[in-house]
Amino acid sequence: MKRHFRVWRGDSSGGDLEDFDVEVNDGEVVLDIIHRLQATEAPDLACRWNCKAGKCGSCSMEINGMPRLGCMTRMSTFTAAETITITPLRTFPVIRDLVTDVSFNYEKARETPAFAPPAGVAPGQYRMQQIDVERSQEFRKCIECYLCQNTCHVVRDHEENKEAFSGPRFFIRAAELDMHPLDDRTDRKQHAQQSQGLGFCNITKCCTEVCPEHIKITDNAIIPMKERVVDRRYDPLVRLGRKIFRRDQLESEGALPSQRTARVTAETPSGRRLPEAPAVGPDGRLDISELAAPSQGGLSPFGEDLTFPLPPEQVTYHHPEPDPTLPQSEPPATGGSNS
């Protein structure tokens, strides 16, 4: 039976919806129709796909205006008379037809500090309980289809927020690492608030709605992260509890000093703090609304929660004294490739 389709074709210079009538068989999904189009009427119709089983997250597109995976949208969910409109993801620049440039997401991934392995635990010695890893495991189900990134109105409708906002995918990454039983960093919350733009999220839950893996992005990652930020900034009871019991494993401030020193001297560069820009807007000026800032007056270019002087064991700066055990300066390992 033939069904009517409208597919957006074009590139960054412009384009439009084109009409096609395509044969549809029982049990097919939208991606099958695109393949049929490629094999017949439009051999150069550009579309990403890989596994065709909802496991790789390549075939993200918008079907009748909703962000979805082409391989997971069964044709049987549409009525026979319905016109099916297929467009590329709106939030990202288009390359051609249904293919968009998703490099925004890869850039944001790079800016999210990686897992910091615990100091002094050898490979093979990691011990974690199943109940402790389960929360993070939910977020590791993510197939990086970027439908959540695409549907989030913070960047979908406001291109200018892209710089300051990392998007749901990277909030769950931050939550995953913050809840990881053995992650050695304690500043995930600060990072989420200050560098990822957690505050932009107004929890309207569209990311959760479109997630093909049904990860509870808002309830299990974003809100807990917001609450964790509240913990250290706003909650009086938590502060009191911390004072009374002198322990707070969430912040793991009670880590042994010896461990902490070990961590700084032992080379774990992947856990190193990323350079953070001063807290000014794109115009180079500080935010006007001082009232909203936790401390009044000019914001510190080192981040608002640093007090000076720093405890020496937290300083990651290495004094440029020649270390006799190391070669003077390690040449960048180019192997002469630039000659």
Partner: peptide, 17 residues
């Protein structure tokens, strides 16, 4: 085991392995 140091989270046994 090396993967765990990269951040992998495998399912665990009762004793945490």
């Amino acid at each position: 085991w090396e993967l765990e140091t990269y951040g992998a989270l495998f399912d665990r046994t009762k004793d945490g392995k």
